[in-house]
C-alpha cells in the first residue's frame, strides 16, 4: 500500500533533481559550442551568395525524452491551461543541439555558410501509454 505512494514520489524527485542538473549542464555546453561556431552564418533563404561554388548537404538530429517530473507538471498544466514552460525548455535544448550537430558537419567541409535550413520536430516511437520521444532534425546546404 505504502509502496504505491513511495514509488511515484521518488520517481518525481529523481526526475526533478537529475533532470535539472542535466539541463543546466546541457545549456552550459550549448553556450560554449555555439560560441565556438559564431563565424558560421545560418540562413533559411534559398539564395546562394556570390562566390560560393561548392555545396554539400548537411544535417543533424537528436532524440530526447521528457522526464517524469516534467510530465507530471505538464499534466497539471493541461488541467488549467496556459504555457507549459517545462516542455518549452526541453524543445529549445533539442533544437539547439540538432542545429549544432548540423554546423559541426558543415565545419568538416570548411563551410562558413549554411543555406536553406529546415527544422523538423516529430514524435517518434510512441508507446501504448502515449509516451513518446521527440526527434528534432535540422538540415540544410553547406556552401563554400
Amino acid at each position: 500500500m505504502i509502496f504505491s505512494f513511495i514509488i511515484p514520489i521518488s520517481l518525481v524527485l529523481l526526475g526533478f533533481i537529475v533532470g535539472r542538473i542535466n539541463e543546466a549542464r546541457h545549456f552550459a555546453d550549448l553556450e560554449e559550442r555555439e560560441d565556438s561556431f559564431k563565424h558560421v552564418v545560418l540562413s533559411d533563404l534559398k539564395t546562394i551568395p556570390e562566390g560560393m561554388n561548392r555545396s554539400q548537404f548537411v544535417s543533424g538530429s537528436v532524440v530526447i525524452s521528457i522526464d517524469y517530473y516534467k510530465r507530471i507538471i505538464a499534466s497539471i498544466r493541461m488541467f488549467f491551461g496556459g504555457e507549459v514552460a517545462s516542455y518549452q525548455s526541453l524543445l529549445t535544448r533539442a533544437r539547439r543541439e540538432a542545429i549544432l550537430r548540423m554546423i559541426d558537419e558543415a565545419d568538416d567541409y570548411d563551410s562558413k555558410y549554411i543555406a536553406n535550413i529546415r527544422i523538423e520536430t516529430s514524435k517518434v516511437f510512441e508507446n501504448d501509454e502515449g509516451i513518446g520521444s521527440l526527434e528534432v532534425y535540422a538540415y540544410g546546404t553547406a556552401l563554400s
Partner: peptide, 10 residues
C-alpha cells in the same frame, strides 16, 4: 523517461 535527456540509441 524518468530522468529525461537524449536517447542516443534512438
Amino acid at each position: 523517461n524518468i530522468i529525461g535527456g537524449e536517447l542516443h540509441a534512438y
